[in-house]
């Protein structure tokens, strides 16, 4: 750091960053392409539309949350609670829907109320995180770590240590929200795509995205530049909460149940996808399309390990871990070479 020579206005610097930026942008895509090739070579079924559909719809949950997480991290924050928040929201949604059946019967009415509950709860949970962080001034890591444990415990308690199951007839009406779709594309994939596109636009082309990056780079500069630092930060958590709600709305019809193990470690997978995609963990720079690539990379690794017997699928976590660390090491290397 002491080496930064501010007095020499060397044009070489400018060119250097521009060139390296391209490599940085291409890195994750390159990794994705390599993975696809490897997957295909190991098992030609890999590219079958059924398999792709499977991978994408399972990745959609992480993906939807990861788009929200990109904004949180870009603005210099972090949210560790999203995994257990999913479990909690799913649990409450199921309990609400089950409880409403005697009054409203089994139909879309109940499901719509359930969906509304999920989104609402997500917004509230996000707001609680955000308010504790911005108004009380507590570290995001601490707040969301606490919330993670609280939500997990609440789900276990609500399920009394077991599983909360959705009423069977409601479940079969609700099922198409996960398994159905448009033009052969499942709903979760469509929703993920829409969320990602909106996220990309918001990040790159709106004042909100610009403000998130400004806050993550230098909060003081943002404040002196008329950015409502607290409100923008708060909104990143609320939006993430709503997206967690949305992911839960899509998740419930998949299994029709919620338990202590629902959404386990999803927070880590979500954060990992964001970081692999090139967003800086320290904030200040975020890339939604990169996050999407990150989600796909993680999803494909899981899938490839399942399709081939080259490496035990039990090692999936270890491989993901290596990739996460590698992604950050590469970021670091680029930064210092600048």
């Amino acid at each position: 750091m002491a080496m930064t020579d501010t007095t020499s206005n060397a044009p070489a610097n400018g060119k250097g960053t521009g060139f390296k930026f391209d490599i940085q942008a291409l890195g994750p895509i390159l990794a994705l392409v390599v993975l696809i090739v490897i997957g295909y070579l190991l098992n030609p079924d890999f590219l079958a539309s059924k398999n792709i559909t499977n991978v994408l719809s399972r990745s959609a949950f992480i993906g939807i949350m990861a788009v929200g997480m990109t904004f949180v991290i870009t603005a210099g924050g972090l949210d560790l609670s999203v995994g257990s928040m999913t479990a909690f929201i799913a649990g409450i949604m199921i309990m609400v829907m089950n409880a409403l059946i005697p009054a409203l019967g089994t139909g879309w009415g109940v499901i719509l109320i359930g969906m509304g509950t999920g989104l609402m709860l997500g917004a509230i949970a996000g707001a609680v995180n955000g308010l504790l962080i911005t108004r009380m001034g507590i570290e995001a890591f601490i707040v969301t770590l606490g919330m993670m444990v609280i939500f997990r415990s609440l789900v276990t308690w609500m399920a009394d240590g077991g599983t909360i199951s959705l009423n069977f007839s409601i479940g079969s009406i609700y099922e198409p929200v996960y398994y159905g779709g448009l033009f052969g594309i499942r709903w979760p994939i469509i929703v993920f795509a829409v969320v990602a596109i909106l996220g990309e636009i918001a990040m790159r082309h709106t004042a909100y995205g610009r403000h998130c990056a400004a806050i993550g780079s230098n909060e003081q500069v943002a404040r002196y530049s008329a950015v409502h630092v607290k409100n923008v930060r708060l909104m990143t958590y609320v939006v993430l909460g709503i997206l967690v709600g949305l992911a839960s709305v899509l998740y419930v019809p998949r299994l029709g149940s919620a338990s202590n193990s629902t959404g386990l470690l999803w927070e880590l997978e979500t954060i990992a996808a964001v970081i692999i995609g090139g967003t800086l963990l320290s904030g200040g720079f975020g890339r939604v399309w990169g996050t999407v690539v990150g989600v796909l990379i993680l999803g494909l690794i899981d899938n490839i390990l399942n399709l081939t017997d080259l490496v035990s699928p039990y090692l999936n976590g270890a491989i993901q871990g290596v990739i996460i660390i590698l992604a950050v090491v590469l970021q670091r290397a680029r930064k210092s070479s600048r």
Binding site: H205, T206, A207, R210, A213, A214, A222, G284
Partner: peptide
Amino acid sequence: ENGLILTQDMRRNLTLLALKKFSNIVIDR
């Protein structure tokens, strides 16, 4: 410390304070 974001380019720094003037829903690049 308070004036400029050193890790961003001139354009983003320039318009940060008056960003509203440049953005309807999206920013007019």
